[in-house]
Design a protein around this nucleic acid. Structure first.
Ligand SMILES: [Mn+2]
Ligand SMILES: [Mn+2]
Ligand SMILES: [Zn+2]
Ligand SMILES: [Zn+2]
Lengths: 139, 139
DNA sequence: TACTAATTGAAAATGTTTTTCAGTAAGGAA
DNA sequence: TTCCTTACTGAAAAACATTTTCAATTAGTA
């Protein structure tokens, strides 16, 4: 079972309909090892469903993000790309050469967070962490 | 001495000219406690120099970023805002309610970085860290 | 099978950033 | 100071990115 079926099921369970256009977008984003911009999703998904419109890509990405199935990837060069979301509390590791995206977990920022909270008076709610480097193939 | 003079000096030392338009932009961004979008910089700087054009704001921000005097701020709602850059190795702490921006330092991610490098085969070059919360006034 | 509301793609609208261009002015040289 | 070269300017146009509008289509249930 290509598990992109699970995403379609999620869409369906939330009252959204399953269409050929959405299948093409979901299949494209689900399997990606690199983050994809709406334009890139469009170009790739159109190979699976020729009549697809770019607007539908935007609309589908919006729904997938709302259901936390995908997440936006922030990079120095731009923040318009998406990737399948990590499960639980994870952060991204990005290859600066080939663009490959991986997740990691196990960061422990509690001590830092407490220390900064004390120092600044902030009540800290959330954090973003991202590592950049060269993947095994590119190094 | 309003230390935004130092920024103008930097511009000058790098072969850029000091103009009324640039003064207005530099003065605006230098003192800000919140990150500002180009549009916001434009609106604020125009109070100091009426003839200012939005294009010049974009062009000046570009140069200030190139000289590492300002940096882009990434946020869930958008990544188009800028703030005076931190000195040395620092990260941002953002108030989710009022938008105030502060810097902190002293994060130590060496152990984490080494562990992830080992686990993934990546050669890690850089990291982004950002804390979100409520500032002393807003909590 | 019939029905209804969600979904579609095209086109238009909106919003943001960059490029082009002819006039202006900064600032070093004389 | 004056002159001169060249960077800089704002307006307008162009290039992009994203959202809205709309009439036709279609998914999914009754
Ligand atoms: Mn974490
Ligand atoms: Mn750090
Ligand atoms: Zn970003
Ligand atoms: Zn790589």
């Amino acid at each position: 079972m290509t598990s992109s079926e699970a995403w379609l099921e999620q869409l369906h369970d939330n009252g959204y309909r399953i269409t050929a256009a959405r299948r093409a977008v979901v299949d494209t984003v689900f399997g990606a090892t690199h983050s994809l911009t709406p334009q890139e999703v469009y170009e790739s998904a159109r190979k699976k469903y020729r009549a697809l419109g770019l607007v539908t890509v935007y609309r589908t990405l919006e729904k997938l993000e709302e259901l936390h199935l995908i997440q936006r990837v922030h990079q120095p060069m731009g923040c318009h790309a998406f990737i399948a979301a990590g499960i639980g509390h994870q952060h991204l590791l990005l290859c600066q050469h080939c663009g490959q995206v991986e997740f990691f977990e196990g960061d422990d920022l509690d001590a830092l967070t407490r220390s900064i909270a004390k120092k600044t008076g902030y009540q800290i709610q959330e954090h973003w962490l991202q590592l950049f480097g060269l993947c095994a193939n590119c190094r």
